[in-house]
Design a binder for these strands. Sequence first.
DNA 1: TTAGGGTTTG
Length: 772
Amino acid sequence: FPISKYIHAPDGDAQIPSTLQRIYIKDLNHDSQCTDKYVKGTVIMKHNLIALTRGEDMLKAVIEEHAHQHAKLSETTSINVFSFGKLAKDFSDKINQGDTIVITGFRLGMSPTVNKDKRHLCQIELEERRATIYVCPAAFSGQSSSNPKPKYTYVPLNELKPGEVANVYGIVTFFKQPFQTKGTDYCLVLTITDESGVKLGCSIFNEKLEALPQIYKIGDIVRFHRIKSLLFNSKLSGMTSLGFSALTFDGRVGTPVCPRTSSKTYHFGEEDRRIVEKLRQWAATIYPNLEISLATVQPKSFFDLTCQLLAKAEISRACVLLKVWDGTKCPHRLLKILVEPSAIEGNMAAIQDLQDLIVEILVYDNHVEVAKKLKPGMYLRIYNLHAKLQASGTKEQTSNECHLGFHLHGGTSYGRGIKVLPEDSSDVQELKKALESANPEDTMDDLTLLNACCTSAIENSLNAELSPYQEDPLTGGFAVLTCHHTVKSDLLSNVKNSTPPQKFHIKAKLKSYQPDKLYQSVKLYCPKCKRVQEIPDDETIGSLFQEALNLPVLSSDSWYETFLWESSTDVGRKVAVHFVNVLGSEEHLLTLVQGATLEEVCRLSTKFESIIPIKFSEDQMTLLDLSAPFLIQGKKWSYGCKHCSCVKNIGLYLEQEMVWEPENTAEETVLGVELLQYVFLMKFELDDGTASLDAILWEDAEKFFQMLPVEVMVNRAMQEKMQMTMATLCPPGKHFDELPWLEFCIGTYTTDENEDRSVYYQIFDTMVAEKL
DNA sequence: TTAGGGTTTG
C-alpha cells in the first residue's frame, strides 16, 4: 500500500490510473501540459539525500526511458529528477538503481546542468503534495520488460586467461590520475584485486576524460564489463576492449551502493548489490580504514587528504600554494609560506576565522596546471601529499626548530595528484559534516556574551579564568589576547559599516602604527581639562631654566637650609640649593634649586631625590614656567597643567604643608599645581583583508602593554620591552602576509565636538600576552 | 595506438 506518495508496483503499469497518459521523455518540453501525464523510466543514477538549508530533504536521480523502436540517436532519453521532502526520503530508502518508476503529478523546470550532463533540457521536479511515484523494482521489471536483459557473469581475477574478454569486479589498490596519452586517448592506470588475492594492473583508455571510471580513493570498488586480459612482462594485465564499460562504488561498508558511471544505460540489480556488499566486507578485513586527517598526519609521511580549498596563490611558474582545511587541527608546528597578499585568491574572511585549522600546501610542476584551475570552495582529494619536516621557513622560524610543510611534489608516482570531488560524493558529505562542526562561525556567535564580557565587572573574573598565554604559531612569542577571545571575531568591514557606539572582537594585522618613535607615544594628559600635550623637549625646558638664571637668589629662611655653589660654566653665577627636611627624615628630603641650568639640575638630580626648580618673583618663592618640570625625581619629571594650575607663593605652602611627600604623586594637586599624567597614545593601522582602519590605543593602553607610561620614560629596560613588543606585533620590513594575526577588542564612537560625526575606533580590553 | 605504478629533494 502507498506510503506517502511512493507506491510499490511490482506488476508494472497496472496500478496507474487509466485517466493518465504516458508522455515520452523525448517529447517533454517546458510548455508540456503535465497534469494528466506520466513519465516512465529506469533509474540509472541515484544520488545521496541532501538536506537543503531550509531543512527540507532533496534527492537527485536520473531516469532513462527504454529505447523504443522509433527512437532517433539524437534524442535525449535521460532526464534529471529532483524529489523533495518526504518523497526524497522515500526515494532514497526504497528506490534502487535499476528500478523502473512511473511519475505523476510532476512539474518541469529548466535543467541548469544541461551543458554539463548532456541530458534533457528540462528536469522533473517532484513535490510531496502533488507527485506520486509508482515503483516496479528491478527484480520484477525484467519480467515485464520487452527487452530481456543480458545476463552477466563475473570472472574472479585469478581465472582470467590471456587474450580473453571478461567481466570483473575488483577493489582498487592503486590508481593514478587520468592523463593524456601520446595517442588519441586519455588513460587511467589502476590496479585491482579481489578475494582471489590476484592483482590486475589495468590501462583504461577513452577519448573523453570524463568518460573514464571515476576513482576517488584506494578501496573503491569497480565493475568492468568487457575488459581484455593481456600478458605484459609475463604478467597478466587488463585493457579496455570494444564495448568496455565501468561502474565505480564507494568501497566502505555502510555507504550507499550508488554507482558512478558515464554509461547512459547499464544493468545493476540485486545480484550486483550483493557482490559489492561482499567485496566491501572482505576489503574491510584486509584494508582497514586508514583515512588520515590533518589531526592524525604523521610527520615524514605521505598520505591522501580530503579537504576543502579556501584560497590559492601562484608562487612561481612551477609552484602554487593551496590553503585548505579538513575541519581537524594539525597538532604540529606548521611551515608558513610567504605570499604577497595581492596574489592570494580566495575567501579571506574564512581564512581569518579558521586560522589554526588551515594548512598550506605547495603544489609543484605538473600539478600546477590542475591547481590553477581550482576554485576556492572546491572539495579536493590530494593524493600522496608529503608531510615533510623542515628546518626553517621564514626568518621568525629559527633554523633549529622543525616545521611541518605539506608538499605535492612533481610527477605522478604513487598516484600523486589532485582530484576535485563532486559535492554529492560520500567523502564530501562526510567532510562537510566535519567542517560544519569545526567552524567557529556556527558555534560562537554570541554577541550578548561579547557585550557582557566588555563590562569591567565581569572582565576581571574572565581574565582570571582564561589562560593569557597563547603561543602564536608565527612568532612563537607573543599573542594579543582579549578578555573574551572565545567569542567569534568580527570582520573590519562589518566594524566599519556599523553604527556607533558598538564593541567588537576582531582579528587583524597591525600594518603600521604611530608614532613610530616609541618615546613619542607617551604624552601628558590633564585629567581636569582633558587636554593631551606632548612632553616638552629638552631644548624648550633648557631655555626656561636659562631665563630664570639671573634672577636674585633667595636668602635663608627658618624652614630650609641654603647652600650656594659657584657655577662651573658661568663665572660669577651662583646656584642656590635649599634643603627642606620634610618630617625630619633624610629620605624625604626636598631640594629647592635656584639659578641652575637644566644640565646642572640634571646633575643634582643624581644626588638628590626630589628637586623643585624655583625662582623668586615679587618677593615670593614660585615655580618656573609650567612648561618645565616642576618636580624632578631622578629621571622622573613631573609636569603641571598650565591651564588648570594655580601656583602662587609655594614658600608659604611648603612651610605650612611640611607633610607633603613628593613620592606621593597619586595626588592630583600639589603646590597649587594640577598634575599632568603620563599616558600612552598611539594609533594602530589595523587590516584584516576586508578593510583597514585606524584605531587609537589610549584609555586601555597601560593594560595593553602592562606597563606604565612613566616607566617607559625613565626605564631603559621598559623602553626596550616596548620596542620588542611593537616589533613582534608589527615586524618592521615585512609584507602584509608575513605579519602575525592579532586579536583586539575595539569600540566605535563619535564625539560631540565633531560636527561631521566622524567615527573613531579605540582599542580596549586587550593586552599583550608574553610567552612564559 | 595510447600505458604498462613504486616518492622531491622545492
